[in-house]
Design a protein around this nucleic acid. Structure first.
Length: 200
DNA sequence: ACGCTGATGAAG
DNA sequence: TTCATCAGCGTT
């Protein structure tokens, strides 16, 4: 399987554009001599301090510092005390934004994912932000990782073409607390894919 | 519908 | 130093 890593310039753009273009790309994880791969089929955008659902909406804090930094870095955080979420920082330095990777289609090293998830069901391995980090052995030690240079984690393109009419949008999951921002249609997913986490 | 679980940051 | 809150998941 041939593929090429995405560089800084891909992520240093408008977040909604990056989010939509991430659909169909490959998430590659090298872990203990294994190369685990999944195709991105669902993402969410979190943009700036005006977005009440964005962690950076309360300004620069130790936790959100990464979102204000250089694009192409991983922002990994623990949620609900037990799960990790993987985001990729976007836009130019100084503007806080990121794309949450919400769901993948398993592509390579499925047994490693099955071992990590304690299930063999393909549809339950990587179909959710907390599930995919578990399946890909992504934890807080990858927080701040530069995906444009990292040997352990990056995004790649293999020539897969996403048809524009296959991209669907909806409101984001789990952000009902965010008032007006909760209504923004900033979740994108591939309409044909059975590996989307949540039908809405 | 609910409990699990711990980092985070705001309040005091 | 407490305390409420939470970009989720699995079981009921």
């Amino acid at each position: 399987m041939r593929y090429k890593r995405l560089g800084r310039s891909f992520f240093a753009r408008d977040t909604l554009t990056v989010a939509q273009e991430l659909l169909g790309k490959l998430l590659v994880r090298r872990w203990r001599n294994a190369t685990i791969i999944g195709r991105i089929v669902e993402v969410e955008s979190y943009v700036g301090t005006d977005d009440a659902a964005c962690h950076a909406s309360h300004g620069r804090t130790p936790r959100t510092e990464l979102m204000f930094g250089r694009p192409g870095h991983a922002y990994v955080y623990l949620i609900y005390g037990m799960y990790h979420c993987l985001n990729i920082v976007t836009e130019k330095s100084g503007f806080p934004a990121a794309v949450l990777i919400r769901s993948l289609e398993p592509i390579a090293r499925v047994p490693a994912m099955q071992k990590a998830r304690h299930t063999n069901n393909l549809l339950n391995l990587t179909t959710g932000p907390g599930k995919l980090t578990q399946a890909f052995y992504i934890r807080s030690n990858l927080n701040g990782e530069d995906l444009t240079t990292s040997q352990g984690l990056y995004v790649a393109h293999d020539g897969y073409v996403t048809l524009p009419n296959d991209i669907q949008a909806s409101t984001r999951i789990g952000v009902d607390y965010a008032g007006k921002s909760a209504k923004l249609p900033w979740r994108y997913f591939l309409g044909h894919s059975p590996y989307v986490s949540h039908s809405k």
